[in-house]
Nucleic acid binder design. Structure first.
Lengths: 211, 211
DNA sequence: TGCCGGTGTAAGTAAGCGCTTACATCGTTT
DNA sequence: AAACGATGTAAGCGCTTACTTACACCGGCA
């Protein structure tokens, strides 16, 4: 009566594998990579520690597998065409809303990246840089298209993308990562609207603004 | 020939104390709190490990002393009056420049805060929240004053402060913390100018913008 | 039926950790 | 000259860590 508990085997990526990954994601994000022990991960996942090492050759490989399995950017990219057809400020608000949703969704991933990127220079940095570059390029293409349509001024679309991202990301970081909720009011929609109003006024073409 | 090396005693905060603090600051920021051992800190500081524990009762207290000894905000605040007398966009650029200088100066401190804030909820979070709130309020007061002078539109100055900070901080974070230098060009001044141009256009009063 | 893959328990390894103790040394102060 | 305070060396304590080995079990499949 000491053996397995009847969990079905479903191939290499069965539920045990997944359970370990998800549990480790949560623990790494709250306690840090060094702060979460393999004993603790196994215990919280409801498995034996030795089982963890049968699925992952080392703790480090477990971390790497966790950090390389998120790909939320395609969904963000796919939304750009729809946003292009909205009125400009409305488009900005909905893009910011989508970005914020996505960031909240991958909150643990972001937290680990931010905390661990110093320690493990090559692997994590490459993944994170790829994510950021891709994100910036996505938003830059949005601004570039609107510039060609004459809606926007003649700023550099890549810097605009960075500014847009900076505003939204820092809001996310302070509210979600640093637990600084309700800084002014618990109204996320209001914050986004205020931010995007400033950003929209700063980027529309002068002639469009005067209309 | 095994004893002290002739370092002068200068009171409770002598050079040994400082050396430990500075070395630990650097190591905590690159390897994380858990990743940097007291042995390693002592070795890099050129002292015996036991000396470290004579200066600091525990590793945790060492971290706390490191994180509570920075106070760069007064300098940032003191610059606001001068900025108020500059043309608006020029003022924004110089404020952003000052903020960026300050962030670079306390880079290690910020890195530790970002990485460790999850693990040690109360102490660090309190210090960091105080820092951020104070920073936001400083910039909000700048916008509030210019609104009263009629230079700016009628946006909420606190959200504007957050947007301003977000743009600058994310630029700093990506360039300095994530080592993503030369994203487009190695010209920090150009980036700030582009950012502040957008921000200025987004916040000036309509009548002032049309002039 | 018998094997096999995945899991469990139990025990243990070598290394590193934060931190302590005991004692020697050296410069300064009294 | 003697005491003192800050530092050094050396050893080690108790504990945790990532990771391993050996063996038992159990369900599904040939």
């Amino acid at each position: 009566m000491t053996g397995g508990k009847g969990i079905k085997s479903l191939g290499p990526y069965d539920s045990t594998h997944e359970r370990i990954l998800e549990t480790a994601l949560g623990l790494f994000s709250t306690k840090g990579y060094q702060g979460a022990s393999t004993r603790e991960i196994a215990q919280e996942a409801g498995i034996a520690e030795v089982t963890l090492f049968r699925h992952f050759p080392s703790k480090e490989k477990l971390l790497q597998e966790i950090l390389s399995r998120f790909s939320v950017l395609p969904a963000l990219k796919a939304y750009i065409p729809a946003a292009l057809e909205l009125p400009y400020e409305e488009a900005l608000v909905s893009l910011a809303d989508h970005l914020l949703d996505t960031l909240v969704q991958i909150k643990d991933w972001v937290r680990i990246m931010q905390a661990e990127v110093q320690r493990s220079p090559e692997k994590l940095l490459t993944v994170f840089h790829g994510f950021i570059d891709d994100l910036f390029e996505t938003y830059a293409s949005f601004f570039r298209e609107l510039q060609q349509r004459g809606t926007l001024g003649d700023f550099d679309p890549e810097y605009a993308a960075r500014a847009f991202h900076g505003i939204v990301f820092c809001y996310f970081s302070i509210e979600e990562l640093l637990h600084r909720k309700r800084y002014k009011a618990n109204d996320r929609g209001e914050a986004i609207r205020q931010f995007m109003r400033i950003f929209a006024l700063g980027t529309v073409s002068r002639t469009a603004a005067e209309a």
